[in-house]
Structures are given as structure tokens and as C-alpha cells.
Design a protein around this nucleic acid. Structure first.
Length: 117
DNA sequence: ATTATGACTGCAG
DNA sequence: TCTGCAGCCATAA
């Protein structure tokens, strides 16, 4: 797998995230084998193809990291809310509830009380 | 080859 | 809880 494959892998992982769930950059980087490459994941998202649900990717704090300045704000929040993700009053997401851990076969320790919607 | 930048993360204040 | 600083690493100039 060449370096360009890294981007492709990121996209594949993001595509695996179902509606109503989100993943962090570090999570993706970890799934790829390098938790330190979280930043490069962001770089990959910068080229986010249309067939990639980039809006389901947030930072480790459950906040939207997408640049709020690209000429206009991103519809990320609206998209997530439309999928059933409930935002906190401070604009944060409860990763304990919406965080996805089954990225490409993860050990997981999913809590038993994951109630969605 | 070297410096700067960034859609990140974790720790410290 | 929030802000700031340092560590990491691929891409750009």
C-alpha cells in the first residue's frame, strides 16, 4: 500500500461509520496503526470526496474540528443532527454514546447501555 | 535539504 | 471548563 493508499484507507474507514455515529481523527489513525497520524487523517479529509461522510469525523473532544472559516460554515452539525446525533448545549457530541468503535474490526468494549435516539 | 503549516491529541495552568 | 504549549508527521514552499 503506497502513501496515497493512506488517504484511501481513511475514506474507507469513514464510509464504514453508520448514521448516528461518529469517529475521531485519532481513532481512524489508530485503526490504521498510527495514532500519531491523526493530523494526516485531517489532511486526507481536506480532500474529502463526495462519497465520504466526512461530517461523521470529529476531534477527540467530541467537537467539530472542521474549519469554521472556509468562506462559510460547514453543514456538519446539521448533517449529524439530521442523522440522529444529539449535540450538547456547548456544541459537543457525547462520544460515549455516538462514538463508533467497530472501525475495521476493533476490539471494542462497547457499553451495554448504548441507547440511540 | 530545511522551514512552515495544519479538519489532531494530551498534558499542564 | 477553557486556553496554552509541546509532540508528531505528512504535505507545501
Amino acid at each position: 500500500m503506497d502513501k496515497a493508499g493512506f488517504f484511501q484507507e481513511v475514506y474507507e474507514l469513514v464510509k464504514q461509520v453508520p448514521e448516528g455515529h461518529v469517529v475521531t481523527y485519532g481513532q481512524i489513525a489508530t485503526a490504521l496503526g498510527n495514532p500519531r497520524q491523526a493530523r494526516q487523517v485531517g489532511w486526507a479529509m481536506r480532500a474529502c470526496p463526495e462519497d465520504v461522510p466526512w461530517h461523521r469525523v470529529v476531534n477527540g473532544q467530541g467537537r467539530l474540528s472542521t474549519r469554521p472559516e472556509m468562506g462559510s460554515f460547514s453543514p456538519q452539525r446539521a448533517l449529524l443532527e439530521d442523522e440522529g446525533v444529539q449535540f450538547e448545549l456547548d456544541g459537543r457530541i457525547d462520544l460515549d454514546r455516538y462514538g463508533w468503535s467497530d472501525l475495521r474490526s476493533a476490539p471494542v468494549a462497547r457499553r451495554s447501555g448504548v441507547r440511540r435516539e
